[in-house]
Design a binder for these strands. Structure first.
Lengths: 257, 257
DNA sequence: CGGAACTTTGAGTCACTTCAATCGGTGTGG
DNA sequence: CCACACCGATTGAAGTGACTCAAAGTTCCG
């Protein structure tokens, strides 16, 4: 099904949060040809064949990027939420060095690189994509710290905090509840821990009254305490509307195009 | 000392490896105003004050980005070699969430963001900077895997392999020797290990005849074996000249500007 | 009701850490 | 030129966080 951006536009907008678009920019986004595709859980998002021809935007559902070591151990290196463009880098690199997999049933919008190029001709849109890319890299850096220097319990709490904040930023959180349909195995692969250890870490968080996690719904009972426990500070997420995060010079200028 | 790009240009070019520049692009680079600054080892590269006003390019020496946990443990999240632009992201984000520190005496070139903007108007140069950014992110992802899923010895070997390959890519390697003036403490902070364990891991690598590391000079005695030991594959570095790494569509097109 | 997938629990083991001391090189002041 | 101090590398030994193995308990779903 080839369509124009309807719901996607609202998502793309979230990524550009804080930007009021000029008519030209508006049009560039809404006229972007996008093919919407539905996927089951645990499906690879990347088809070998057309790697360097297209990228996608996650519309609904949860996905992750992962790599596997020579010993067969999997490490998830990042989660993708609705509005993210997990394989945007293929546009610039021509290859992708991670597997990108849905973790829930999902819908993605596929955008051909030739069309994506259009967006890049708008400097402020290009800058917005830059910012998305750069803040993804910032998340990776924090993950290195998390996996490298925090022990199991803090590490687990930290990841939960990140997910809460990111979910919140895209409005996918309801009070203190939100859907987090991850298995403990997936948590383990994201945290560089064993399943058993994740299970025990979560028990501690529960016993201390910080969270509840029954079924797919995570409830954060005591956010400050969870952040404390996870040594968490959301600066690295570069969420919109923070002082010092004004974006690049291009944005601060009057609208062009 | 305000200067024009002399030696820096050769470095910037390395980043763009494989691109033959048009006269316009050539000029954009060589006319870029750059202030060269010499720094001692263990100096912070970022001065609080002008964070969002300028970025730098590392001309000589070795630097790293690091973060510190609430418990005071340091994690190095990436190394910077000559030619890298460690704080390029400040151009897009306005803030930097890591400390950037010299690890040896170093020279950096400081470029004002207003001048950097000039480069971004050249689409192929902008694309080249994108690629630099994106491949840095790819390195971060591999670090997450390394720290999360490989044991001490493999982890250590893997990092050495990365440094060898990156050094080689910028021509900073002589045969199998190259200058790697890191302390074991710095290695430990990069690997998420204790100093003691790094020391013992290195001993294994030496005893197995894979490396020699006396003083600041690392010699790789058996590269294939070291790569084997470190479960290393250099795909993620996206070094120039690899099949599938043709860069983005902008590059594949005829020169503009 | 049965089976698959996930969670939870227990117990033993190991990789890695921490603590603490020694060794070796290098620079400096006397 | 030597004594001392400092920094980094190395070693030993004890402790522990996290892993592995294995089994049992749950939940979900056809």
């Amino acid at each position: 099904m080839l369509t124009r951006l309807h719901e996607p536009v609202t998502l793309l907008r979230l990524r550009l949060a804080g930007l009021d678009l000029s008519p030209g920019e508006e049009k560039a986004i809404t006229s972007l040809p996008v093919r919407a595709v539905s996927l089951a859980a645990d499906q690879s998002i990347i088809r070998e064949a057309d790697r360097s021809q297209q990228s996608c935007i996650l519309l609904q559902g949860l996905a992750c990027s992962s790599k596997v070591t020579g010993e067969g151990k999997r490490q998830i290196v990042g989660f993708h939420l609705p509005g993210d463009m997990p394989d945007l880098l293929s546009f610039h690199l021509g290859t992708i060095d991670t597997a990108i997999t849905t973790m829930t049933p999902a819908r993605i919008g596929i955008i051909l690189h030739e069309h994506l190029e259009e967006l890049f001709t708008h400097r402020r849109l290009a800058a917005a994509l830059w910012r998305a890319m750069v803040s993804e890299a910032a998340i990776h850096r924090e993950w290195v710290v998390n996996v490298g220097r925090r022990r199991g319990i803090a590490r687990t709490a930290h990841l939960l905090c990140e997910l809460v904040c990111r979910m919140e930023a895209i409005g996918a959180i309801d009070g203190d509840n939100f859907e987090l349909p991850l298995t403990q195995e997936e948590m383990a692969d994201a945290l560089g821990l064993s399943i058993v250890h994740v299970n025990r870490s979560l028990q501690v968080l529960r016993q201390q009254g910080l969270i509840t996690w029954r079924g797919p719904v995570l409830r954060v009972l005591d956010r400050p305490a969870l952040m404390e426990m996870g040594d968490f500070n959301d600066d690295y997420l570069h969420l919109a509307g923070r002082p010092g995060d004004e974006g690049c010079p291009v944005d601060r200028r009057s609208r062009s195009s």
